[in-house]
Amino acid sequence: MTDSVPEYPIAPPAPRKGRGAVTNLQGRYEVDQREAVDDGWVLHEEEEGGPPALRTQVFDERAKTILTRNASPDIPFSVSLNPYRGCEHGCIYCFARPTHSYLGLSPGLDFESRIYAKVNAPELLERELSKKSYVPEPIALGVNTDAWQPVERELRLTRRVIEVLSARGHPFAAITKSSLIERDLDLLAPMAARGQFMAAITITTLDAEIARTLEPRAATPARRLRTIRTLSEAGIPVGVSIAPVIPFVTEPDMERVLEACAEAGASNASYIVLRLPWEVAPLFKDWLAAHFPDRAERVMSRVRDMRGGKDYDANFATRMKGEGLWADLLKQRFHQAVRRLGLNERRRGILDMSQFMRAAPTAGPVRDDPQMNLF
Rank of each mutant, 00 (worst) to 15 (best):
D3F: 12
E7D: 12
Y8G: 03
Y8D: 09
P13A: 10
A14T: 13
G20V: 06
L25A: 07
A36D: 11
L43E: 14
H44G: 07
E45Y: 09
E46F: 08
G49Q: 08
G49C: 07
P51S: 11
P52E: 14
Q57I: 12
Q57V: 14
V58S: 00
F59T: 11
T65D: 13
T65Y: 12
D74F: 00
S78C: 10
S78D: 10
N82W: 12
N82I: 09
H89W: 09
H89D: 01
C91Y: 05
C94G: 02
F95N: 00
P98V: 08
T99N: 03
L109M: 11
F111W: 15
I115T: 00
Y116F: 15
K118S: 06
V119F: 05
A121W: 01
L125F: 08
R127T: 04
S130Y: 06
K132W: 02
S133T: 15
S133R: 12
S133I: 11
Y134L: 09
V135L: 11
V135A: 04
P138V: 12
L141P: 05
L141F: 03
N144A: 15
Q149R: 05
P150A: 07
V151E: 06
E152M: 08
E154T: 12
L157K: 08
G169C: 10
A173N: 08
T176E: 05
S178E: 11
E182A: 13
R194G: 14
A199K: 02
I201N: 03
L206F: 07
L206K: 01
A211P: 03
R212M: 11
T213N: 09
L214C: 02
R217C: 00
A222S: 12
T230D: 01
L231D: 01
G235M: 03
G239M: 06
S241F: 11
I242A: 00
A243P: 01
P247F: 01
P252A: 04
V257F: 05
A260G: 10
A262N: 08
E263Q: 14
A266Q: 04
A269Q: 04
S270W: 10
L274D: 09
R275V: 04
L276H: 02
P277Y: 03
W278P: 05
F284E: 08
A296S: 13
E297T: 07
R302T: 08
R302S: 11
M306H: 04
D311H: 10
F316P: 15
R319N: 14
W326R: 15
D328T: 06
L329S: 07
F334G: 01
N344Y: 06
E345H: 08
R347D: 10
I350A: 14
M353E: 14
Q355C: 06
F356C: 10
R358T: 03
R358D: 03
P361K: 00
A363F: 04
G364T: 14
P365I: 08
P365G: 15
P365Y: 06
R367H: 09
